[in-house]
Amino acid sequence: MTLAPTNGQLPPATTTIIYRPEGGIEGYREVFDGITDVVVSSFAWPTLKEVSIAAAAPACYLLVDQSCVYFGETADIRRRLNEHARDPGKNFAREAYIIGGTGRSSELWSDSSTAEFLQFRLTDLAEQGSLVDVIKGVNPRIPDLSKDRRAMLEGVVRHSLRLLFDAGCRVFCSNNGSQRRVTADAELLGSDPAGPMRIGVTATPLPGTELELIYGDLWARGFPNEGRFVVMAGSEVRYSVNESAWGWIRDDRAQLRAEGVLVPIAGLEDRERLVVAVEFGSASSAAKLVCGSRDGGKWMPLRFSPPTPTV
């Protein structure tokens, strides 16, 4: 994103207020400009239990680490963040940012459409900027808005971007450029899968080699196998595919559905399930397909080891 206009004129001067109710430098802070009914709250994600958050307040929020971001919206920010705190899939987060109202009575935050619109637009802007990887569950949807309200909320987006930057968020603008973990060489290699996909393999993981995928709240397991990588039967596959994802991801998913091994999950619209083990050319290719993402998630050692079988 561009931080300055391209017509040669300097942008108008602005003032941002940073309030630290608990003192210190790195702790909880509220960032606002005193003009709009928008405030960005920021704190270290591991300190959530120590942060005082208003009950049942509507908001849009970001969970962030150095290279990825998860966007959400809710009518009750305290309840939703506490739910995320119990979700191992959100353990990647290092910082949390909440966009909400300043506490004054305002039509702006009277219903859920403001938070929904912010989630949709900020997700889109983060994907366009390509500074970090965007972790998604379900693709955000734009609410049904009148033209005048949408124009008003676009103004809220602009204010929010400035306040987020001043709060320390570098998801949309950064003087350091891209923060994604993938190197240029890896990005080029990702345009093609690392070898053909094999459906219905019978390999089993050696003791201690089973891995789990860290991407939102997806449940997926896999293991390396003779220089390739197997995604185990029962693993979930995110239904949506990011617009920036490689074309082969859609092609391979279509093949899995055509062969009847990637099937819907009753009661869930945002994911499907593999009913057989599928082998990929690399762990990276497997993660890209499972996540529907250009860079995929991370395969990590199991956080909870399976019980040792008794003889």
Rank of each mutant, 00 (worst) to 15 (best):
P5K: 04
P11V: 07
A13P: 08
T15P: 00
T15R: 13
R20K: 14
E22T: 15
G23N: 08
Y28Q: 01
E30C: 10
E30Y: 00
D37C: 08
A44T: 08
T47I: 00
E50H: 08
S52F: 09
A56R: 11
L62P: 02
V64T: 09
Q66F: 15
S67T: 09
I77N: 01
N82K: 15
N82L: 11
A85C: 10
P88Q: 14
K90H: 15
N91A: 10
R94K: 15
G101Q: 05
T102E: 02
S105D: 13
S106C: 03
S110C: 06
D111I: 03
L118G: 04
D124R: 13
I135R: 14
G137T: 09
V138F: 07
I142M: 14
M152I: 04
R158N: 09
S160M: 05
L161N: 00
L161H: 02
R162C: 06
F172M: 00
Q179N: 10
Q179E: 01
T183D: 06
G190P: 05
D192R: 13
G200A: 03
T204E: 12
P207M: 02
G208V: 03
T209H: 09
R221K: 03
F223P: 00
F229A: 00
M232W: 06
S240A: 12
S240H: 07
S244R: 15
D252H: 13
A258W: 05
E259M: 10
G260D: 02
P264A: 02
D270N: 14
F280M: 13
A286L: 01
A286N: 02
W299Q: 05
F304W: 11
P307K: 03
P307W: 01
P309G: 03
